[in-house]
Simulated assay, not measured.
Amino acid sequence: MASESTKLLIGHKEKHFTAGDVVRDVIMGVSDGLTVPFALAAGLSGAQASSSLILTAGLAEVAAGSISMGLGGYLAAKSEAEHYQRELKREQDEIINVPDTEAAEIGEILSQYGLERHEYAPVVNSLRKNPQAWLEFMMRFELGLEKPEPRRALESALTIAIAYVVGGLVPLLPYVFIPKAQKAMYTSIGVTLAALLFFGYVKGRFTGHRPLLSAFQTAFIGALASAAAYAIAKFVQAP
């Protein structure tokens, strides 16, 4: 029976997507990178700034934004790891000090999956004999916590920062090649909206949402932000 199960598992290939944290960081970095410098460039264009000034301000914002976003991702991941360690220590103490209560909690968790007492009792007894497995079971099924990767904080910071820079350079590129800010702005709008549509579509494919809807939602948010910045700049400049 065991060998038959092993054969089935070997022949079965799962196709689940497992890089959720990395994709989340890329989405966060690129979406903000595309939107914030885009809105800044549009606002400065509305204020009649020159292409060189817009480019300088945009690059400064990309640098500051990537550092800020990367640091935010680092701190968030560190906080998550610290929270996991606190809960792990608390759960370890409870298993040592109130083992019967913790064992009863195992039964309660398994009963939620439709198992009767006579069905889950052997599982409870087996876990009690293996403290490490017991601890991992409680962390995952009682608290819903997964053990963070040791390098998660640094990887998250770098991923978000690099993604922000990549996204942020897209709306600024036209200002490199087109000296007149107004013309550069129109080109930037076209390039950035195309990038937002593409990014939104890819994001939808990875996250399981409808790609076309995701594409239009992402582009709409970016367009709204830039339009608001442009309108505010025009309003402030109005006599």
Rank of each mutant, 00 (worst) to 15 (best):
D93E: 10
E82D: 12
L75F: 13
D93F: 07
S45P: 01
E105I: 10
D93P: 02
A104T: 08
E82C: 02
E108C: 06
A64Q: 05
E116W: 08
E80Q: 14
Y113L: 12
V123T: 07
Q48N: 14
P37I: 00
E116D: 12
A104F: 03
M28G: 05
E105G: 03
H83Q: 09
I96G: 08
G46S: 08
D21T: 10
A39K: 06
L40D: 00
L8H: 13
R86Q: 13
A103N: 06
A104C: 04
I27C: 00
H118Q: 09
I109V: 15
G29R: 07
V30Q: 07
A64R: 10
E119A: 14
H16Q: 10
G20E: 09
S66I: 02
H12K: 15
G114E: 12
E116G: 11
L8I: 10
I96T: 11
G114M: 13
G58L: 05
G107N: 09
E108P: 06
I10M: 03
A77H: 00
S5G: 01
D25R: 06
A41Q: 05
R117S: 04
P37E: 01
P37G: 01
A49S: 08
S5V: 10
S111T: 02
S51L: 09
G107A: 12
A19I: 02
A63E: 04
T101K: 10
N125P: 02
R24E: 03
V123H: 03
Q48D: 12
A77K: 07
P122N: 01
A77Q: 01
G33N: 08
S126M: 13
E105R: 10
G33S: 02
E4P: 03
S50A: 11
H16V: 08
Q85K: 11
G43R: 08
H118N: 13
S79K: 11
S52T: 12
G70P: 03
E61K: 04
A77Y: 00
V124S: 02
H16P: 05
G70C: 05
D25K: 07
S50W: 05
M28K: 05
S126G: 08
S52Q: 15
A121D: 15
T101F: 09
Y120D: 04
L59C: 01
S31M: 10
I109L: 13
K15M: 02
G11W: 14
E116F: 11
Y120F: 15
L9Y: 14
T6N: 15
V124K: 13
